[in-house]
């Protein structure tokens, strides 16, 4: 995973609540067997509407998505995170994220930042008023900064450490190989098995 320390970029205000992962990347895109090439599928249905925010020329190259509450609900498809990253987003700001989407984002280095709704509103207003306005998402300082706005955000220390260092979860877990083996040795015999090995 790519490390995330701090990022500054222009923003896209997405004034919708409950943006589900079917909207972020529709199911027919899920037939791909790679982690890349999903950028054209991002918000595919909404992008057919010329007035949709991502279609506005001044939003080209924006890297911070400022979304409505309950972003990423529904399906567990990690493709939603890949689609946002493939398109160029580095961070998503919302007052609430769905649990699975949030977990997936942090495993891929897409920083999902939870801020109070009134701060999200202020960031959306800023981005709407001035498409050139930049937002800084600073993971080291755990702070979001923009013109006239400074807001601290929470992220658990372990997740932050892994993001800052771009660490691979599997390698970390395998350092505890002895614990896993010890646990396996004491599992009861009535637990189900799919095959005899």
């Amino acid at each position: 995973m790519e490390a995330f320390t701090t990022h500054t970029g222009r923003a896209v205000p997405l004034r919708r609540s409950n943006v589900d992962t079917d909207q972020i990347i529709p199911a027919h895109w899920l037939k791909k067997v790679t982690r890349d090439g999903f950028e054209d599928g991002l918000f595919e249905a909404w992008r057919k509407d010329p007035s949709f925010i991502l279609n506005q020329p001044e939003r080209e190259g924006a890297t911070v998505l400022v979304a409505g509450p309950d972003f990423g609900t529904g399906s567990s498809r990690e493709h939603a995170v890949w689609a946002l990253q493939n398109y160029g987003f580095k961070a998503v700001v919302s007052s609430r994220f769905a649990d699975i989407f949030r977990g997936n984002s942090l495993k891929n280095g897409l920083l999902t930042v939870v801020l109070e709704q009134k701060i999200v509103d202020a960031l959306q207003e800023l981005a709407e008023r001035d498409p050139q306005a930049e937002i800084t998402v600073d993971l080291e300082a755990r702070e979001v900064r923009a013109e006239g706005i400074t807001a601290a955000f929470e992220l658990d220390e372990n997740a932050r450490w892994r993001l800052l260092n771009g660490l691979d979860d599997i390698s970390i877990t395998l350092q505890n190989e002895a614990d896993i083996t010890a646990y396996e040795a004491k599992r009861p015999s009535h637990k189900p098995r799919t095959v005899q090995v």
Partner: peptide, 19 residues
């Protein structure tokens, strides 16, 4: 029982555990 993303699918395949 809970749903997981593809990174976690890989994690479980490799380690049979999840943090």
């Amino acid at each position: 029982a809970f749903g997981i993303g593809t990174s976690q699918v890989e994690h479980v395949l490799a380690t049979q555990t999840l943090p």
